[in-house]
């Protein structure tokens, strides 16, 4: 029986969908059986990020309302052996599904997969409650900005209330140069504030935009820093002990600072 992991953030635009797509593709290419569920009803996007938008027949609401079986609604990603997507409905809204239905669905699906990843909508209303209802674990995505970190803190509180203890953190769009110049919060700053375990750090990378434009996932690009970061996170999810990637470019200044003990 597989694990159901919800990917959430509170704030919109921090990269939940991109993270979901990349972790799903990464886990599948590492050999796991993966099902991605887009829980953002009315604003579906995981399909287009993954390049599967032309293949949707049935959706999540068709399944929860009993119009079709979940297997029939799953879209197989042909680039992988074992990657499937359950698309969200686009013409309904989040009240078309309730948390009890999601829990039933997750329990049914997880028998067939190693990992079920749920892409949670932004916000803390019903869409959020739907997305976390069937989850065994949670990943919180944030960026190094006050708004995103504040919302992440709120989400962590709500997850713990729902008994999703010990969520893991992914810090997305990190710009190490800015941290170095004192213009961005560091990973340590964020971890100190949120007091949760770090699952990984994804650097800001233009290749994410380029890949998404094409409906591809950057995790498969061996020449990208963000792809490497996603691959490391995948290995950690699969239980490997992978050290945090150094985002630091060791210039003269960095070395100097270490020598005089300011680092």
């Amino acid at each position: 029986m597989g694990e159901v992991i919800v990917i959430t953030s509170g704030k919109g635009g921090v990269g939940k969908t991109t993270t979901s797509a990349n972790l799903g593709a990464g886990l599948a290419s590492a050999g796991s059986r993966v099902c991605l569920i887009d829980a953002d009803i009315g604003l579906r996007n995981l399909d287009v990020v993954m390049g599967l938008e032309n293949r949707i027949v049935y959706d999540l609401v068709d399944v929860t309302s009993g119009n079709c079986s979940f297997r029939k609604a799953l879209i197989k990603d042909k680039r992988f052996d074992k990657l499937f997507l359950m698309p969200a409905a686009q013409t309904k809204d989040k009240t078309a599904v309730n948390p009890a239905q999601m829990e039933v669905l997750c329990n049914e699906i997880k028998d067939d997969f190693d990992y079920v990843l749920i892409d949670c909508p932004a916000g803390i209303e019903q869409g959020f409650r739907n997305a976390i209802a069937g989850a065994d674990q949670a990943i919180v995505v944030t960026t190094p900005e006050v708004s995103a970190v504040r919302d992440a803190d709120r989400i962590i509180g709500l997850l713990e209330k729902e008994d999703l203890r010990e969520p893991k953190l992914i810090v997305n769009r990190m710009r190490h140069q800015m941290v170095k110049h004192g213009d961005m919060m560091s990973i340590d700053d964020i971890i100190e504030i949120l007091a949760i375990d770090l699952l990984g750090v994804v650097p800001e990378d233009e290749l994410v935009v380029v890949s998404t434009n094409r409906g591809e996932m950057v995790v498969l690009n061996n020449n990208s820093k963000s792809g490497q970061a996603y691959r490391n996170i995948v290995r950690r999810i699969r239980g490997e002990d992978v050290p945090m990637m150094s985002l630091e470019d060791s210039g003269l200044f960095g070395k100097l600072r270490r020598i005089i003990g300011l680092k």
Binding site: V149, R150, D153, K180, H181, G182, D183, D189, I193, L262
Partner: peptide, 23 residues
Amino acid sequence: FGRESSSSRNVAKERLRLVLVHD
């Protein structure tokens, strides 16, 4: 070395710390 306490990084951290006490 970009570490003065009024750097926007430290301002952000301090503001967050305060707002989260309330939140």
